[in-house]
Design a protein around this nucleic acid. Structure first.
Length: 572
RNA sequence: UGGGGCGUCGCCAAGCGGUAAGGCACUGGACUCUGACUCCAGUAUUCGAAGGUUCGAAUCCUUCCGCCCUAGCCA
């Protein structure tokens, strides 16, 4: 398994662990867990948590469990547990035999609840949800005690038993902790521990009709598993007193909860709810649409586990809310693919070039290196002939300054082949559209044995027309337009959020090119494998839509494009 | 308005009383049969603000300001 640069990982959580080791708090043991709820697909925010939890364990010679937090049968499904397992594995982490479910502990949790009742620390409450809310008070006003708060232990025991056997309808009773209705921390105002949900659970079926709340299930699950450091996100900070209270009352092994800031990335949605909305409203093709920040989406897009792990390492772990620039993610995948992707030629938007002085029927097979930086990646043969395609961007009839690609009278090098010179352009008389470009080549300039001594500024990629293989190429861009920080006026916040995020969707997040051509060597490109299309970017063979008759490439990320910056600067 | 948390370069982020790491982005330049990669160089006298303690403060104290979370029988 991956050991990465993780051993160097320094963050405030590691500092806490170092301190715990010094004081022998957990007998030098480090045991973490990744606790997803199986109610959706994992996204890159979860990857941060996965890398953190497994990474901390690895770095400290400890263990990390995979535990499904499945305490709400109405939202959860095995479809999600399967995808989550797959994603965690794909990211490169291994839970060995430590795959657990909170539902494994339902019986024990029930016993602990009974213990709480026996200690006079919990009671069955018959207030309606509405009434409970009213009794809770507000941020500034203390709550009021439930009229059911001081029932006898015997009565509570009996009622709780009745809840379990299904005597009462959904929502009619709950088990509540008896803490303090006047606590400034609302989580301590007699929080609900158990509720009645008569729904089939994906693992326990209809064995139960009462289910523990997160606040009850989580500390107990952690304790049962001997977790030492229970790492969660910032919004649970206010729940920590309750976490501690329960463990203290129950007098069982006491892990420590540590909170860190969740991941946010520019131009990217990171909420399960909104991602689900994208899927359900058809703005994307599914959870694994290559534009989605889900692990499955990134995988299909062509991101590698190495790049995602590297990213998670680089962003760091802290407690301040932050938004990481997506350019860092892009840098990580470029860096990884640069080191391993074979280079290949593809013409995305072809325009035909005819080399007038090249024999009509001749085909030359030129040797091309697969990666100029890694000779060990070998070479391949490339067919060259009289008619070729070049990228339409690589020709400009009236070149701007600093443009050193093909233009009338100008010479460029064809990568791995000859230097050609543009002689004339043939256009459609009515539309003015360029139909073909006529060039001549210099036979003394063949790559590898150039005897001309010529130096040209530009090198462009090309493909022999008769050998080019058609392909569909999908260019992806950010799902969201630039983050607009326009402040919404107070009212209707919910609505505004949903609406504004739909309005902020990038209409050009997917551009399908159906006239692209690629090298014949790509005919047997394996699904999912990544390439660098020379001068353009990194692409991978789409795992879903590629078939016997059609090969589809996804653009993972473009190459850095200095020329685009120059052009942009020229215009402004 | 109660409680909790956070505020170090455009974006992340080290730093924990001894005089501001690193990464991304950006800007120059070198190299280049990918305007890619790589390589050099540059970029916070300043750490939300104001006071105070100290020989010395981003680090300690005080006050203030800003942002986030929190009133689910969701997690």
């Amino acid at each position: 398994m991956w050991q990465g640069g993780i051993l160097k990982m320094i963050n405030f959580i590691q500092n806490i662990i170092n301190e715990d080791k010094k004081t022998d708090k957990y007998e030098d043991r480090v045991h973490t867990r990744f606790p997803p709820e199986p109610n959706g697909y994992l996204h890159i925010g979860h990857a941060k948590s996965i890398c953190l939890n497994f990474g901390i364990a690895i770095a400290n010679g400890g263990l990390c469990n995979l535990r499904f937090d499945d305490t709400n049968p109405s939202k959860e499904d095995t479809e999600y547990v399967d995808s989550i397992k797959k994603d965690v594995k794909w990211l490169g982490f291994d839970w060995d035999d430590r795959l657990f479910y909170a539902s494994d502990y339902f019986e024990k949790m029930y016993d602990y609840a009974v213990q709480l009742i026996k200690k006079g620390k919990a009671y069955v409450c018959e207030l309606t949800p509405q009434e409970i809310r009213e009794h809770r008070g507000t941020l500034t006003q203390p709550g009021r005690e439930s009229p059911f708060r001081n029932r006898s232990i015997e009565e509570n025991l009996e009622l709780f038993e009745q809840m379990r056997v299904g005597t009462f309808p959904d929502g009619s009773r709950v088990l509540r902790a008896k803490i303090d209705m006047a606590s400034p921390n609302i989580n301590m105002r007699d929080p609900v521990l158990y509720r009645i949900i008569k729904a089939a659970h994906h693992r326990t079926g209809d064995k139960w009709c009462i289910y523990p709340m997160y606040d009850f299930a989580h500390p107990i699950s952690d304790s049962i598993e001997g977790i030492t450091h229970s790492i969660c996100t910032l919004e649970f900070e206010d729940h920590r007193p309750l976490y501690d209270w329960l463990l203290n009352c129950l007098e069982i092994f006491h892990p420590q909860q540590i909170e860190f800031a969740r991941l946010n990335i520019t131009n990217t949605l990171m909420s399960k709810r909104l991602l689900r909305q994208l899927v359900e409203e058809g703005h994307v093709q599914g959870w694994n649409d290559p534009r989605m920040p889900t692990i499955s989406g990134l995988r299909r897009r062509g991101y590698t586990p190495e790049a995602i792990r590297d990213f998670c390492e680089r962003i760091g772990v802290a407690k301040s809310n932050s938004v990481v620039d997506i350019s860092l993610l892009e840098h990580c995948i470029r860096e990884d693919l640069n080191a391993k992707a074979p280079r290949v030629m593809a013409v995305l938007r072809p325009i035909k070039v005819i080399i007038d002085n090249y024999p009509e029927d001749k085909v030359e097979w030129l040797e091309a290196e697969n990666n100029s930086q890694l000779p060990e990646m070998g070479t391949r043969q490339l067919p060259f002939s009289r008619e070729i395609y070049i990228e339409d961007e690589d020709f400009m009839e009236e070149p701007t300054k600093k443009y050193f690609r093909l233009s009338p009278g100008n010479e460029v090098r064809l990568k791995h082949a000859y230097i050609i010179k543009c002689e004339r352009v043939i256009k459609d008389e009515s539309t003015g559209k360029i139909l073909e470009i006529h060039c001549t080549y210099d036979p003394n300039t063949r790559s590898g044995d150039d005897t001309s001594g010529k130096k040209v500024k530009g090198t462009i990629h090309w493909l022999s027309v008769q050998h080019a293989m058609p392909a569909e190429v999908r260019l992806y861009d950010y799902l969201l337009l630039d983050d607009q920080d326009e402040e919404k006026e107070g009212e209707n916040e919910e609505r505004d959020e949903a609406d504004s995020f739909i309005a902020n969707l990038n209409p050009k997040s997917l551009v399908k090119l159906t006239n692209s051509v690629v090298e014949p060597s790509l005919a047997d490109g394996e699904k999912g494998s990544g390439y660098q299309f020379l001068r353009q970017g990194y692409f991978c063979v789409d795992i879903q839509d590629t078939s016997g008759e059609k090969i589809v490439f996804n653009r993972v990320v473009s190459l850095r494009d200095t020329w685009a910056k120059i052009e942009k600067a020229n215009k402004s």
